[in-house]
Amino acid sequence: MKTAQDLVAAAKAGITEVALEGAEEAVLAADVLIDVREGNEYQDGHIGGAINIPRGLLEFMLSTDESLQDRSRRYLLYCKTSGRAALSAKTMEEMGYLHVKSIDGGFDAWKESGKPVAHPSSPDFG
């Protein structure tokens, strides 16, 4: 029986991961940056310019949101440590997306290296 770690390892073997050292350049080169963490994780901080599509909704959003259906665009994914992003990248490739990469080490590595972190602004009801 396979474990989650087995599935992640298999996904990582078949996708392109960007090393942390090249992550900022990859972010700039991406047409679409997707944070596949849960909404509360995204709210606590994310990479600037990222849209939040939790892993559990990814296939459905890709299938229904017209702005995400261009399979020739460059997509860059990340999650907390890179497992969910690897699974997501593999799924996107299986769905016919041609240029999908994920960030090795995920958001935790990004943040720990001192790279910029964006925080959504809260509405001012005052």
Rank of each mutant, 00 (worst) to 15 (best):
M61L: 11
C79A: 02
L7Q: 09
V18N: 08
I103D: 06
K12P: 01
E21S: 15
M1Y: 07
M95P: 04
D31P: 03
D70C: 13
N52E: 01
P120N: 01
S72R: 11
E17M: 12
Y75L: 01
H99F: 09
S67P: 08
E112D: 11
E38A: 12
R84D: 00
T81S: 10
P123D: 08
G105A: 10
A30K: 04
D108A: 15
T91E: 00
Y78Q: 02
G114D: 12
D65R: 08
P120M: 05
F125D: 12
R73G: 05
S121M: 13
K2A: 14
A11W: 07
W110T: 05
E25I: 10
G14M: 13
F60H: 05
L57I: 14
I51F: 01
W110S: 06
D108W: 15
Y75E: 02
D6Q: 12
Q5L: 05
L62S: 07
S113V: 09
T64G: 14
L68I: 07
T81F: 09
G14N: 13
S122K: 15
I34R: 03
G83M: 09
L98D: 09
E17N: 11
I53W: 01
Q5H: 04
G49P: 08
D44W: 13
G126Y: 11
N40T: 14
Y42M: 14
D44L: 13
D70F: 12
D44T: 12
S113W: 11
V36L: 04
A89S: 03
V27S: 06
R73Q: 06
I15C: 02
A118R: 06
R37P: 00
E38L: 14
L68W: 06
G14P: 03
K115Y: 15
A13K: 02
S121R: 14
A30H: 02
L62T: 03
A85I: 00
M95A: 05
L57R: 15
D65F: 12
G48P: 10
P123T: 10
E93K: 04
A11S: 07
K115P: 15
V36G: 03
H119S: 11
R84S: 00
M95R: 10
P116H: 04
D104E: 12
Q69V: 08
L76A: 06
S113G: 07
A23L: 10
D108C: 13
K101M: 06
T91R: 01
E94F: 07
A4D: 10
L57T: 14
G39V: 12
G83L: 11
M1I: 10
S88V: 00
E59H: 12
V117Y: 06
H99N: 11
